[in-house]
Simulated assay, not measured.
Amino acid sequence: MSALPSWIDERIDRNLDNTLSQEHVVKTMIESDRPFFSLRQLHARIKPEVSRATVRNRLQELQTIDVVATETYPDSITLYYINHPESDWPLSPEGKRALHTDTPLDRLSTRAFLTLSDTAGIRTLVLAGLQLSLVLFALGGVLTIVGADVSSTQSDIVLWDTAAELLVISLALLLVERLARWVRDRYSPLNLLPST
């Protein structure tokens, strides 16, 4: 098992007389890929020979020292999670950072683009293309009104042509992505490219 964060390590009780330690409960929760647990789920992961009452007692102790927090829902369902001081439930600090830094374009891979499988990434790309075409149209309009050309290349016309081409490409990409999504929903996913 890995080392505990210092803010947890300072708070937990190292009572070796208990059949289940606070440290073991916390490490089980941290090392899991789940952000929260019911008592039953946590009991199944810890030790089958330890009773649920013992797991509940350790969780209550951890809650008292603000290492674990709970959310209670109807039907008496209580979920337990690590009470990370620098984020809101149930996100760990790493999860919170990932949400703030990971955009759809950051996650868009070449494979997801070629197979049109990452809807959010492709739509973000299309939106960027539409916005860039709007900027190019506006810039071409300003150059036409001002009557300025860059080194006599009729830059306003070049900008309008580029904007029109970018607009058509963006709309075509959006149409193809929606068609691919419709085909996947109707006929199940097609594996055109081998997975890595």
Rank of each mutant, 00 (worst) to 15 (best):
H84C: 01
N83K: 11
S109A: 04
S155E: 02
V142T: 08
V135R: 02
E94S: 06
L173N: 01
H24M: 13
A163W: 04
I30W: 02
Q63S: 14
F37M: 09
F113R: 07
W89I: 09
L136V: 01
L175P: 00
G129R: 07
A172W: 10
L174G: 15
T19N: 09
I145K: 06
Q63C: 09
L179H: 08
L171Q: 08
M1S: 15
R97G: 01
T28S: 08
V67R: 06
S195L: 14
S117G: 11
P90H: 10
A44S: 10
A98T: 10
E10N: 14
P35M: 07
E94V: 11
D102K: 04
R178I: 07
S21Q: 05
T124S: 14
L192C: 07
W160Q: 09
V50I: 15
D161P: 00
G147F: 06
R34F: 06
H100S: 03
V158A: 12
N57A: 15
I169T: 05
S133C: 08
L59V: 05
D102A: 01
M1C: 05
V176I: 15
A112V: 00
R111P: 03
P189E: 15
L91D: 08
D17S: 13
E71L: 13
V68Y: 01
A112G: 11
E177D: 12
L171Y: 05
T28H: 00
V158C: 03
T78D: 03
P90D: 10
A120K: 12
P189T: 13
I157P: 00
E165I: 06
T115L: 05
D185S: 09
S188P: 01
R34K: 13
L108M: 12
S51P: 00
V168L: 15
I145A: 12
T144D: 09
L192P: 01
I30N: 03
L39E: 04
R111A: 07
L114R: 06
S195H: 12
V176M: 09
L116E: 02
V67Q: 05
P93M: 02
P74L: 14
L108F: 08
I30K: 06
R178T: 10
I30G: 04
I12Y: 15
L139P: 00
D9C: 02
E61N: 14
D106M: 06
A163Q: 04
L192K: 02
L134Q: 03
A3N: 13
T196C: 02
D88V: 11
Y73H: 14
S195F: 12
N191K: 11
L99N: 09
R11I: 00
L59C: 13
W7A: 05
V158P: 00
Y80G: 05
T153I: 15
V55Y: 00
M1R: 05
R34T: 03
T54S: 14
L114S: 03
L167V: 04
L39W: 01
L20V: 03
